[in-house]
């Protein structure tokens, strides 16, 4: 946990000026019966050099949020219904497509969940790295090739120069993810969006990739938006976390605080459902039920249907995100509840 304390200090220095700030952001998708709001009133910020985690179940809207920052959600059927996404003070939603293209890969880069599908099978690794470099830097193929070899070397692939000529199918999953990271770093972005980068990898490779990401982040003073459903991974790499549920952020806090004492019953549920090292557990406690469709719970707390602490006041009105100093939670009962964290 020592790294956390160091990162806290870094955070204080830059707190005044977030690199990325998402404000009251909402995304809707067209369905058979009108617009369905899949991301609603999402606000968070990422500061230079810090790692912000975005956690939630499948369908909680975390990937849509990430794709929206890159303006990569297809419109139609999607549309951005409200909010602003400020990157270095500039509203990304106000940019036109050519301007946005200058941001993608250059200032904000992204790595994906399935490295095998995220690399084009018809091109060599080198070719794809060169594509990433030449998209934003006016360099010759030769120079780009040299840079690609450097990048591959940087992410720890031995014999980088030879491996540039390989096609993706010749790489293992871990190596592919390293190659993806190399491509994302090509133009030294200020922000890296990592959409479940370790989900498709086995545990030992996961640990290696996380170590790599952490090292690179420090080396380049790069901010990271880390999307995951794996709380263990989040605890390992993130400085702060926002928990998403049914399209909304239900709780945000530093990793340490979130794990120590969650303020939202959903967070508590996630923690209880997570196996813990060194703690004998016969059975993990699942959260009953499934994520409801946002429209069906629009008039109340969205987690109410699955919450074991649900009371009348939870059904009365939609719950706003309430701040408690640096933390925030979307629970009306947060003052009376004492929820269990991990030790």
């Amino acid at each position: 946990m020592t790294t956390l304390i160091v990162n806290e200090e870094v955070m204080d220095e830059v707190r005044a000026d977030p690199l990325l700030s998402v404000e009251n952001f909402a995304v809707e998708f067209a369905t058979g019966h009108g617009w369905s709001r899949v991301v609603d009133d999402v606000s968070f910020s990422v500061r230079a050099g810090e790692t912000m985690g975005l956690v939630g179940e499948s369908g909680s809207g975390k990937s849509v949020t990430a794709m929206s920052i890159m303006r990569l959600i297809p419109t139609p059927p999607g549309r951005i219904a409200a909010g602003r996404i400020l990157f270095e003070g500039q509203d990304l939603l106000a940019l036109d497509e050519p301007q946005m293209r200058k941001v993608r890969g250059n200032h904000i880069a992204m790595i994906f969940q399935e490295p095998l599908t995220a690399l084009n099978p018809a091109f060599t690794i080198g070719d794809q790295l060169v594509e990433a470099i030449r998209a934003h830097r006016k360099v010759t193929r030769k120079q780009a090739g040299d840079r690609a070899a450097e990048l591959l070397d940087l992410v720890g692939i031995p014999g980088a120069r030879q491996r540039l000529r390989d096609y993706p199918h010749r790489f293992s999953g871990g190596m592919l993810q390293r190659a993806m990271i190399a491509g994302a770093l090509a133009c030294s972005p200020k922000l890296l969006i990592a959409d479940e980068p370790t989900t498709a990898l086995d545990v030992t490779v996961q640990a290696q990739i996380l170590t790599l990401l952490r090292g690179l982040q420090q080396e380049f003073n790069m901010a990271m938006l880390f999307i995951s459903h794996d709380l263990g991974v989040v605890a390992d790499i993130c400085d702060r976390v926002a928990v998403m549920y049914a399209g909304q952020i239900v709780e945000s806090a530093t990793v340490y605080e979130l794990f120590e004492r969650p303020l939202h019953p959903y967070t508590e549920g996630l923690l209880l459902a997570m196996p813990q090292h060194g703690k004998p557990t016969d059975r993990l406690v699942p959260i009953p039920g499934v994520v409801p469709e946002a429209a069906s719970v629009a008039d109340r707390c969205r987690f109410e249907t699955r919450c074991r602490y649900a009371a009348d006041e939870c059904r009365a009105a939609p719950v706003p995100l309430t701040s408690y100093g640096p933390r925030a939670t979307r629970c009306v009962r947060s003052k009376d509840l004492v929820l269990g964290g991990t030790s």
Partner: peptide, 11 residues
């Protein structure tokens, strides 16, 4: 995804 990835690097 690799086309999405290409878009995400600004091609």
């Amino acid at each position: 995804t690799y086309i999405e990835a290409s878009r995400s690097i600004g091609t």
